[in-house]
Design a protein around this nucleic acid. Structure first.
Lengths: 199, 199, 199, 199
DNA sequence: GATGAATGAGCGTTCATTCAT
DNA sequence: CATGAATGAACGCTCATTCAT
C-alpha cells in the first residue's frame, strides 16, 4: 500500500498542481489533495513538512513543465523556432490545461500575500530573456530584421501566450479555435522577419 | 448615522472590490469586508442576501469601471480614440491598481467554480466588440486600412491591456516603466493605420 | 438561548477552571470546555480571542478565590487570624477541591512553557507577604513572640497549606482526616505564640 | 550498533523522565522521546507495548531515585540521619531538577485520569513510613524526644521536601537560596530533639 | 530491532450564515 | 439597520498506533 518515497512526492505534487488549477491556491486544501492522491489527509505530512512546502513543490513541477516547453523546439533556424514554440503552445494548451495553464494563472493571481508570485516573476523574466536570445540569434542568422525593437518583439510573443492562456481560462475559446491567435502569431513573425525569410 | 440604502450597498461593493484585489476572491471574507466598511459582520446581510451576491455586486462595479474606461475617449477620430484608450490604460493602471487591475485578475482567476467567470467572459466579449466597432469606424473614416484582419487587430489591442495588467500584477513593472508597452501600442497602431493617417 | 456577555465569560472561566483541575492545563481543550458550558466549540471565540486568553481568565478567577480566602478572616487578633486561616483552609478544601485546589496545582505544574507559572509565582509571593504582615502585626499586639524567625514562620504556615493541597491531590487523605494537619498547625502556632497568648 | 535490550529500555525511560519534567506528562509524546533517544518513532514499540507502559517505566525509574535518596544516609544516629537527608535534599535539588524534581511534580499533577497518581501515593506513604521508622529509632536511641507527635514530625519533614520542590518549581528560589528552608529544617529538628542531642 | 508510510481521532481556529434583541 | 451570540462545516496540523519491509 505504501509507495516508494520519490514516487509519492511527485504524485502529490502533480495532484496539488491540478487542484490548484481547479480550485485556486487558497482552495488547495490538504484534504482535497489527499483525496485526489487516494490517501488520508495527515499522510501528506510524511512527504511534506507543511502545506507551503507542498505548494512549492507543485510550483517547481509547473515551472519545470514550462521550461521544457521553452526547450521543446530544437530547430536551428531561430525564426522557425519561434514559430514552432507559438504553434506548440496553442496546440498543447488543451491537453495541458489542467496541469499547466490553469495552475499557472492561479499561481500568478495568488497575490503578493504568498511568496509564490516572486518566484513566478523570476521565471517569467527568464522566459522573456529566452525569447530575446532567440530573436538575437535570428538576427545573426539573417532571418530576423536587425532594425526591430527586440523587447517589443519578445513581449509580443510571450504576451501572445499569456493572452491565449487568459482567453482559454475565461472560456473565450474562439480566439484559438477560429485561428485568430495563429494569425496573430504569423502577423508578429511577419513583422520581424527579413524579406529573405518570408516564404 | 445610518446611510441611505444605495450608498451603503455601493460602499460595501467598493470595499469588497478592494478586498478581492488584496486577498483574492476566496480570501474575501465577510468579516474582512465588514471591518473595512466599519460595520459588524452580519450587518452585511441587510444589504446582500449572501456572500455570492455581494461578490456579484463588486464585480458589477468593477465592470462598470472598465466600461467607463472604454467610453472615456470621445475623440471623433477612431484611430486616435484607440490610441487614447491605450495611453489612458497604461497611465491609469497605477492609480486604479487596487480598485480595478488587481480585482480584475482575481475574478478572472477565480475559476469556473464560481459563476463569476461566465459574466467576465460576457463582458470581455462586449469589450472586444467595442474595439471591433471602433476599428470599423476608423476604416469608414479612412484612418484605418481596409485590408487588415479586424479580429487580430482588436485582439492585439485588448490583449495588450491584459498583458499590461498581468505584467503589473507579477511585478514586471519594467514593461510599462521602460516604455515597452507604449512602443508596442504604437507598433500595433502603425500596422493598422493608413499611410494618410500617419503623423 | 444567548446569555448576556459578562455572565457567559464568567461561566466559561469557571468551567475552564474545573476542566483544568480535572484534566490539566494541556488537557483543557476547547471542546471539553464548550461541552461543559453547553455550547458549541467555536462559540467560545465569541467570548475569548483564543485558548490562552481563556486560560488566563480562568487563572484570574482562581487567584481571586485564593485572595478572598486570604481576606476571609477579620479577627482583630493576628494570631487568631492565622489560626482561622489555617482551619478555614483545611475545612474548605473538600468543597473547593474542583474549583481551587486541583486547578491550583495544575497551573503550578503547567511548567515554564506556559507563561502561567510566572503569574502564579507573583501571587504566591504576595500571599507570603500577607502572612509576614499578619505575623508582624501579631508581634506588635504581643501575641506573637518578637524573637522568632518571621520568614520561617510564614513559610511554615503557607507551606502547610501547600502540603494539605498536595496530600489531598495524591489521595493521602489521612493527613487531614486524622487531624494530623490540624495538630501540625497548632504546633506551628504554639512555637510562635507568646506565653501570654496561650490558652 | 544495536544496544543490549535492558540498556535501551533504561535509556528510553530516562529520556522519558526528562521529557516529562520539561513538557509535562501530556506533553510527553512518542515523537519527542524517540528524538531524544535518537531512534525513530515506532521503534519505541519494540521496547514498550504503548505509551502508558513507557511512562510507567519512567516513573519507576523516578521512584527508584527517590528511594535511593532515602537510603543515601547511613549515619547510625537517627537524628543526624534526618538532618543529612534534609541537607542532601536541599543541596541536590538543583542538580536533580530535570531528572527528579520536575518530573515528580508533573507525575503528581498528572491527575487521577492516569493511574500514575495511585502509585505515587503508595510510594509517598512508604517514604512517610520510612521517616516514622527513623524517628522511632531516634527515640530508642534517646536523641529524639519520646513525647512528640511522631506523625506530625514525619509529615513536617517530608512536607518540607515537598515545599522545597514546589518553591523551586515556581521559581521562588529565595526559599532555598536565602537559607530559609535550612533554618526551617533546623527548627523542626530542634523541636523533636532531646536536650541531650542538642549541640 | 528498526524504519517509512499510513491512519483515525482530535485539536485550535476560521468562516458563512442564522436568529433574537 | 445593526448587533452579539451561536452554529456546523471545514481547515492545517499533531499524535498514538499499526503494518509491511
Amino acid at each position: 500500500m505504501a509507495k516508494p518515497r520519490g514516487d509519492r512526492r511527485q504524485q502529490i505534487a502533480d495532484a496539488t498542481l491540478k487542484i490548484v488549477g481547479e480550485y485556486g491556491v487558497q482552495g488547495t486544501t490538504m484534504a482535497r489533495v489527499a483525496q485526489k492522491v487516494g490517501i488520508s489527509g495527515p499522510a501528506l505530512y510524511k512527504h511534506f513538512a507543511n502545506r507551503a512546502e507542498m505548494l512549492e513543490a507543485a510550483m517547481d513541477l509547473l515551472l519545470e513543465r514550462v521550461v521544457s516547453w521553452l526547450d521543446s523546439s530544437t530547430n536551428p533556424n531561430a525564426l522557425e523556432r519561434l514559430r514552432e514554440l507559438g504553434y506548440r503552445h496553442a496546440s498543447s494548451m488543451a491537453a495541458n490545461y489542467e496541469g499547466v495553464v490553469a495552475p499557472l494563472f492561479e499561481f500568478a493571481a495568488s497575490g503578493p500575500r504568498s511568496h509564490l508570485t516572486e518566484q513566478m516573476a523570476r521565471r517569467q523574466r527568464a522566459a522573456l530573456q529566452k525569447f530575446i536570445d532567440i530573436i538575437a540569434e535570428g538576427q545573426r542568422q539573417g532571418t530576423i530584421r536587425g532594425d526591430i525593437d527586440i523587447e517589443v518583439a519578445a513581449w509580443s510573443l510571450i504576451g501572445l501566450t499569456w493572452v491565449e492562456n487568459f482567453a482559454m481560462l475565461e472560456g473565450l475559446n474562439e480566439f484559438i479555435a477560429d485561428g485568430t491567435s495563429t494569425r496573430m502569431l504569423e502577423g508578429i513573425l511577419a513583422t520581424i522577419a527579413t524579406p529573405a525569410a518570408a516564404p
